[in-house]
Every structure is written in structure tokens, then in C-alpha cells.
Amino acid sequence: MSHHTPRGRFATLLGMLATAGTVVALAATPANAAPAPSPALEAQQSAQATVAYRQAVELTFTVSTGGTALNVRSCARLSCGVVTTIPNGTFITVDCQRAGDTVTGNLGTSAVWDRIIGSSGPIGFASDTNIRSGYDGFHPGLPRC
């Protein structure tokens, strides 16, 4: 019976892998390292980080329809229902953008839609062609939804 120490078995395994041409990457874990968080805790921390990130990138723009109210829809398509309207000239808060139906509005033609948020969270989507953000197309300071 062979009496290999754990270190000896490890060296033998590494030797076999090296002979087979296998690349081995090892990460040492200190004996006093904290245990990995539970999946539930990880999900909660991820959700909190997402909320903090979204709050950090909320930008305020102006509705610029040329006179009529801005239609805010349940999704980034013209076929989606209007959930509310916002008067021209109103300041709104946007937290992300996505591609949707191409729309021609007061500021041009685009397929970019902005997600408008209120004090209790997302309200809906509106075409970027009626929101004065200072950019044509996707705004570099906003994430994609």
C-alpha cells in the first residue's frame, strides 16, 4: 500500500496533468477566509447594487414634443398601450434606454426609447425623439435597459 502524503498526491497529479499537456490554474484560499455567501444573500446584494447603480445614473431631461403631450407607453413599441402623458416642457427622469420601434418626433427619427421613472419607480417608455437629452441616439451616460 502506498503512503502518499496529501502534498505528494497533489504533486503526482500535477505531474500527470503537465505530462498530458494540460494547463492548470490554482487559486489558494486562506484557511481563515470568509465562507461564500448563500445564493439568497448574493441575489439580495446584486439587487441592491443594481438599485444603487440605477440611482447613480438617473438623468433629467426635458420633454420636447413641440406642443403636444408626450405619450409614455408600457413598452418601447407604438403598439403598446399609453400608460400616461406628460406635458411638453416638463422635466423628466430617465434611468436607461433601449431599442424599439422607429419613431419620427419633434427632434428627428430614431429607434431609441427612454425609460421614464417617477418617485416610486419606472413609469414606462417614450421615444427619445421627443426628449431633449443633448444626444442623437443612445446617451453615453445611460445604461441599456
Rank of each mutant, 00 (worst) to 15 (best):
R9W: 08
E42I: 11
L17D: 00
V82Y: 11
I86Q: 04
C80Y: 07
D95L: 13
G124N: 03
L70Q: 05
G108D: 08
T129D: 03
D114K: 02
R73N: 03
Q44I: 09
R115P: 01
T62A: 14
V82H: 10
V94G: 08
R132D: 15
G134N: 10
L17V: 00
S38A: 12
T62N: 13
R54I: 02
P39S: 09
G21V: 08
V72L: 06
T129M: 04
A25G: 04
T19E: 15
F125I: 02
R132T: 04
L14M: 12
A36H: 00
G118C: 05
I117D: 08
T129L: 04
S79R: 09
Y53K: 12
T50N: 15
R132M: 10
T102N: 12
T104F: 10
P30H: 05
P122V: 01
F91P: 13
A126C: 10
G134M: 11
T129P: 03
P39N: 07
T60L: 01
G21H: 03
E58Y: 00
Q48S: 14
T85W: 11
G124F: 05
S79G: 05
E58V: 15
W113A: 06
G21K: 08
Y53Q: 11
G100N: 04
S127E: 05
Q45S: 07
F10D: 00
